[in-house]
Structure formats: structure tokens, C-alpha cells
Design a protein around this nucleic acid. Structure first.
Length: 126
DNA sequence: CGCATTTGACCCGCGC
DNA sequence: GCGCGGGTCAAATGCG
């Protein structure tokens, strides 16, 4: 069947902090957001007591795209962001990113399989 | 001016 | 049946 609503889980270890040598004062919420190539719109943020972590909710800007992204990170390690993707993009590939990013995405699929074993498979076929 | 971002409140679902 | 948690939407503000 066409499992279009297959939740995807991808662990993204973002540790790139914006350096502020001149001290522009852009510290506060300098959470990394290089983007996976798609355009996301933050539509909410909540603190999940269950895991004692912050969770940000991002939705794909493409209309008709049911793809959603949820980012969670420990309050003590804002660099340790975990990104979970839900849904699939029904619109063209992210042509916004460079070809190098595409290569990185290739490895992501490799990690994707690993993440499923750790987080738990979406469609438990057991 | 437009858009993106932020915060709050509200709603729904599930658990006990 | 009620409570709590999580999730989403809406509105307002700030910045580019």
C-alpha cells in the first residue's frame, strides 16, 4: 500500500553555534538551524516534562505538505538538538541546499535505519 | 511592508 | 468522570 503517512525519524546532531566576536548581542536563543534544505515555520514551543526537555514544533511552509519537524533539546545542552521528522514532503526536492548537502543526506538515510532501532520503528512489523 | 518569529490560551486524547 | 500532558492555532511584535 502507499504508506504516505510513514513517520520518519532522523537524529540530527547540530552543534554549530553562531560565533559573536564583535559581540552583536545575538546570544539568547542562538539555536542552530542550518535547515535540511526545506523551509520550516516555527508554530510552537513547549517544555516536555516527560523527558525534561524543550520541544520546538516546525511545520513545512509548502502548502499541501504534511511534513512536520519537531526539535527537542536538553535545557543544559542547547547544542544537542534532536530533530524528528514526521510525514513526507510531496513537493520537489530541496533545491535550496548545495549538492554537498545532498551527499550528507545520503548518510542520513544510513543513520535513519539506526535511529529506528534506537527510537523504535514506526511500523512495527513484528 | 511583509514575513517570520514569539507567547498564550485552548483543545483533545489518554490514563487512572 | 476528571485531570494532566501534549499539541495546535491565533495574534502581536520585531526585524529585514
Amino acid at each position: 500500500m502507499d504508506a504516505a503517512a510513514q513517520p520518519t525519524a532522523y537524529l540530527e546532531g547540530e552543534a554549530s553555534e553562531e560565533h559573536d566576536p564583535s559581540g552583536t548581542g545575538t546570544v539568547g536563543q542562538s539555536l542552530e538551524m542550518p535547515g535540511d534544505g526545506y523551509a520550516w515555520r516555527k508554530y510552537g514551543q513547549k517544555f516536555i516534562l516527560k523527558i525534561r526537555k524543550n520541544r520546538s514544533y516546525f511545520k513545512c511552509r509548502e502548502e499541501g505538505c504534511k511534513a512536520k519537524k519537531r526539535v527537542e533539546w536538553p535545557p543544559s545542552d542547547p547544542s544537542n538538538v534532536k530533530v524528528t521528522y514526521d510525514g513526507v514532503h510531496h513537493h520537489p526536492s530541496p533545491q535550496l541546499l548545495s549538492a554537498s548537502y545532498r551527499e550528507e543526506r545520503a548518510g542520513m538515510a544510513n543513520r535513519y535505519n539506526l535511529v529506528i532501532q534506537v527510537l523504535g520503528p514506526p511500523g512495527d512489523s513484528s
